[in-house]
Amino acid sequence: MFEVSPASPLSKAAHYDELVAQARALLADETDWIANAANFSAFVFHSLSDLNWAGFYFHDGRELVVGPFQGKPACVRIALGKGVCGTAAQTRQTQVVRDVHEFPGHIACDAASQSEIVVPLVAPDGTLIGVWDVDSPVVARFDAQDAKGMEALCAVFIEAALPRAAAAS
């Protein structure tokens, strides 16, 4: 059975390297991409400190729709270009928001959220899959190292999910 590691005494970069290897092992033998999304959300939520939400919004061709996540109930639909998630989806760039109250148009699903990081999920052919969204109740919880680490984790998810999602369609 796969076990989530507790908060690590490693450097942030080394901790993300460890998480990437663990995520790869977690997703390797499962063929259902929704199951992988659910486990990935739980894995990240319980492996990093100071998080209050971690999950997916998948693009349905028009907007972002909530997928598997950990945390309080979330906004179900988000328009492209709206809030942090919609901005990441539209620009296809990771958004690191030090203080969500300073982000124009921030969508507050959980009033406890103070900072946020959102990584766009883009297939190799450029198709928008959705976004990976992580919130924290701590201002300035995320930085450039978190962006790099989350992007590496998302690459593992995309690698595991894409062939299976395509086969399911």
Rank of each mutant, 00 (worst) to 15 (best):
P104W: 06
A144L: 10
N52Q: 06
V156F: 10
V139K: 14
V119Q: 09
S49T: 15
G61R: 01
A123V: 05
S169A: 14
A42R: 14
G86A: 02
F2N: 12
H59V: 14
A140L: 08
V96K: 00
Q90G: 08
R164W: 07
V100F: 04
G71T: 04
D17V: 04
G71N: 04
D110K: 00
V97M: 03
A112H: 09
T94P: 10
E102W: 05
R164N: 13
V139C: 08
G126V: 05
P104E: 05
M150A: 15
I129F: 06
P163R: 02
S115W: 02
R92L: 04
Q70D: 08
L10Y: 12
P6N: 07
A152H: 04
L51I: 03
C154F: 02
A112M: 07
C85R: 04
T127I: 10
G86P: 06
A123R: 07
Y16D: 00
Q90M: 10
E63Y: 06
R77H: 11
F56H: 03
L162Q: 04
M1P: 10
P124K: 07
E30Y: 09
N36I: 10
V118G: 11
N39M: 12
F157T: 04
S8R: 04
A25P: 01
R141M: 06
G67A: 10
D50V: 07
R141D: 04
